[in-house]
């Protein structure tokens, strides 16, 4: 029942090679070539982004915030390049169904489903969903196929994701800073 949605989400999910070992996941943020991922996925300024159809693109790190575990990369996009639809991460309900798409343990485009566990922490989305290394930087989406967060870590078994509204804030600051510099 989740197949069509999963396919849609996969088209906006990339693999990121930026560490000596293994790959992380990333999300196509906009048509201009921005890719959002976790800061802990990126170890160097240069990295390679692999698109869902298998093309490898050189990427440059634009901004990294280890405290928020967010990073934004820029590539020169070539079609097909489908940015994720953005959802509202401020009005989540405990129990609502969520999907994660990423590349856990090297398996490309793997899908897991779960629910929102609790809405008690504004800075993190807490989800009851199974994630593995390699899901980091990948998408957490609602049942309308909209991005609500970037999967970041697991704490006491609970999956924590950076909410979309925090990503938007991070990007606004990143580009305000870039213009000032």
């Amino acid at each position: 029942m989740f197949e069509i949605l999963a396919e849609t989400l996969r088209r906006s999910t990339v693999q990121i090679y930026a560490r000596r070992h293994g790959a992380g996941s990333g999300v196509i943020w906009n048509a201009e070539g921005l890719v959002v991922t976790n800061a802990h996925v990126i170890e160097s300024r240069e990295c390679v982004v692999e698109t869902p159809d298998g093309r490898k693109l050189e990427a440059v790190l634009v901004k990294r915030d280890a405290r928020r575990d967010l990073a934004v990369l820029r590539v020169s996009p070539a079609a097909p390049w489908e940015p994720a639809a953005l959802g509202d991460s401020r009005n989540l309900r405990a129990g609502q169904v969520v999907l994660a798409v990423g590349n856990p343990l090297g398996v490309s485009g793997a899908v897991t489903t779960g629910i929102i566990h609790a809405t008690s922490r504004k800075e993190w989305i807490q989800a009851d969903i199974s994630l593995a290394p390699g899901n980091s930087g990948g998408m957490l989406a609602d049942t309308e196929g909209r991005l609500i967060g970037i999967n970041s870590m697991i704490y006491q078994g609970i999956a924590l994701a950076v909410p979309t509204h925090a990503i938007a804030l991070f990007l606004a600051r990143a580009f305000a800073g870039a213009r000032a510099a």
Partner: peptide, 21 residues
């Protein structure tokens, strides 16, 4: 397709809200 999933999602969130009382 997405709509029936959202209905299912809403039903679970409603159950949590109702049970949570």
């Amino acid at each position: 397709m997405a709509n029936s999933l959202t209905e299912y999602s809403n039903a679970l969130a409603d159950a949590v809200a109702r049970g949570g009382t």
